[in-house]
Amino acid sequence: MNIAFFLYSVIGVLSIISFFTDREKTKRAAKKAWNMFSKLLPELMAILLFVGLSLSILTPEFISSFIGDQSGALGVVVSTVIGSVALLPSFVVFPLGETLVQNGAGLPQVSALMAALVAVGFASLPMEIKLFGRRFAYMRNGSAVLMSVLFAMIVWVIF
C-alpha cells in the first residue's frame, strides 16, 4: 500500500496546485479522469475477475506438472500459451518463477512463461482493441509472444 499512499499524495498535491493556478483546467482534468474511469470500467471488472481466476487455478504445482525440466520445445510452447492467457500481478510473477524452478521446471520454459505473463495481455485484449483497434492490439501482443519465445531460446543457449 506504500505505492498507493505515495501516488495519492503526490497527485493530490499536484491537483491542489493545479486548482489554485487554474480552476477551469483542473475541473476539466478531473472530468476527463472520471470519464476515462467510467468508460474503462466494464473491461476493467473483467480483467480483475480474470486475475482472480488465474491466480486461483495456476498454482505452482499445476504449472510445474506441465513444464518440467525435460519438456523441451513443447514446454516452451505450453508455457508461452499459459503465460499469454493468464494475467498475474507483475510482482507475483518472478517469485512464482523461482518457486517453479525449485519445483523442477526448466529455466527456458519458466522464462517463456514469465516473459509472456508480463508482456502479453490476453485479458486486457478487449480493452486494447477498443482503444487502438484490432490490428494494432493483435500485432502488439503477437510481437510480445515472439519476444517471449526468443527470450526462452536465448536463456536456453546462455544459461
Partner: peptide, 28 residues
Amino acid sequence: AVFLTWDSLVDMMALLPPILMLVGLMDQ
C-alpha cells in the same frame, strides 16, 4: 478466485484513480 479478485480490485483502486487524474492534468 473471489477473494483474489477482491485483492486485485483493492490493488487497482490503489493505482488507477490517481494515474487517471495525472493523465487528466497532463492533458490540460
